[in-house]
Design a protein around this nucleic acid. Sequence first.
DNA 1: ATACAAATTGTAAACGTTTACATCGTCTAA
DNA 2: TTAGACGATGTAAACGTTTACAATTTGTAT
Lengths: 341, 341
Amino acid sequence: MAGLKDVANKAGVSIATVSRVINNAPNINDETRFRVQQAMKAMDYRPSRIAKRLRSKSSQGNLIGVVVPDISNPFYIDVLSGIDDFMHGHDFLMITCNFSQNEEKERLYIDALVSESVDGLIVAPAHEEDEKVKALEKENIPFVCIDRGLKNVNADLVLVDNEKGAYEAVSFLLNQEYKKIAYISGLIRIPTSRHRENGYRRALEEFNIPFRDELVKYGDSSMKSGIDLARELLSQENRPDALFTGNNLITLGALQTIAEFGLKIPEDIGIIGFDDMVFSSTLNPPLTAVRQPAYEIGRRAAELLYQRIKEPNRPNVKIVMETELMIRKSTRLENATTKTT
Amino acid sequence: MAGLKDVANKAGVSIATVSRVINNAPNINDETRFRVQQAMKAMDYRPSRIAKRLRSKSSQGNLIGVVVPDISNPFYIDVLSGIDDFMHGHDFLMITCNFSQNEEKERLYIDALVSESVDGLIVAPAHEEDEKVKALEKENIPFVCIDRGLKNVNADLVLVDNEKGAYEAVSFLLNQEYKKIAYISGLIRIPTSRHRENGYRRALEEFNIPFRDELVKYGDSSMKSGIDLARELLSQENRPDALFTGNNLITLGALQTIAEFGLKIPEDIGIIGFDDMVFSSTLNPPLTAVRQPAYEIGRRAAELLYQRIKEPNRPNVKIVMETELMIRKSTRLENATTKTT
DNA sequence: ATACAAATTGTAAACGTTTACATCGTCTAA
DNA sequence: TTAGACGATGTAAACGTTTACAATTTGTAT
């Protein structure tokens, strides 16, 4: 591959000059610029991003890292699209790392990204005490958190009001006269799981329904755990008449189990999933779900990171977005008032 | 961030020695090695991947690039998981780029990856004439293609027998007494779209059913085009009684349209989708689909790339995997003989 | 003891950029 | 005419590694 030097030779100038026209620095003779550009074309010159990054420590790499917990979860796919669109528009490349809910893998990836000298990171921390992510602050590496915050650390953060979203969902279920509502939680170490549980509890309280231990199950945020825990729930002597599922994948799993038990939705059992999916309305029956503005979350996070890279010391920002209850047909139909798709 | 030099100072050795213990070269005094390791720990030293990559041109970067056409398509997610698992196991990091079926974006990303000096690439080329991908061969950059081949270029390739998969699906439909089968194609420039159409045609021929132009629609491989084209199809005076959909996203779109038209599956209309999805069996009714071993495709591709990086001149390999018709309930039930999930 | 091989470590160049600084004309204003 | 400013370009150091080569020490066989 041709390098700066080769181009310089061909154009009969010094490498500094070539560098200048590449970064269109001021004070370059038009004729020189032209010659250099010709030479670059002729040799199909493409700058080495790594050399560039190595040399200019100052955020010139145009490269960011994104660390997500589970790429098989459609929610994160949408988040990634949002990030990608923004970053692509700003000429940044992104390295996406999927740590599969495996904290060790997460640590490994963050290390790798840091040693790639990325300009910044967007991370969904494994949990609030995530030391690896916390360390980023000390090392002065720009980063923004999504979906989950960090305890005792100031950092940009974009997420959704999980407690409220869950509260609305469960309240809705209660209003639809469901009496025994179960909650299938994702990994308990993930703050969102707990916040959603809080919303669940608050709704119950408000309706004067006692909280019952056997109605909440804790899993690992995977489809499989959705399947298994729904089985446990539905096998109970006096089984729940509605399910509130803690994420996308759990919902899919629960749906499978419900089919396996031959239960009719929404008559035999109602279900609301946290996280909407493109095809939720295609499901049969269409799924009532708590929608997070995933794409938007990604986009805002990207924007925040971009700003921070440009201006490392601006104050931290926390963006809390609203969820939206997408009322479809997996819950009884009576008072269907809110938005529909 | 501490560098080689700092560690060397602390340990009282030269940077070369430090480098040696890092890459555990032979012939190092145990005591020295120990001192150096202590120093590294103490300073929380992490090597700079970029410096390393810059210096040692020879595939030491442990970094690959992956370029996929559409990250919102679950098929590619599974492929990515396969790649990721293999690469993670071999200590490689991967940069994933999603070009959203946009050829210009694809070119841009490939350039960027090359100038990141990745050790190799896994690419699903936009089409068979993809010059950017072809160029990789000339530049001697290790790469392997997935899902789609390249015309007149020898390269490692992992894909599925699309023609056969489609043939089997459509034959099955025909055997189930569906008479008027429509095909919704993805982007026509993608070889798989054409191969699948060929399979469709061959099945028709074999059953002596004339091919009818108005029964095949060409779209852009997106869910939206699935929705729109299914609408066109179902609006016809004498509408088709079965749909064969060219990919995941199209299938989802078509399902939505079918629901919109209030049609019953499989009575009013049958449907088989190319590409299975984790939740296909959860759909109502469970979706009959042509399954590609997506994860395996990714894994094998990763393996091939890994090998090629180690041994750039080994002969090219083309791996053609089998599809599997997952017979579920979106087609009539009569002769359900084959596998089920 | 002697010579040569092996083991261990160090020195310095190189990878492809950016960038501070120097150089050298050419203008402009006095 | 000349000093200073400005425009255009070049020189060389630096970024953090790897690695060829040199240097030194140690060991071994004679």
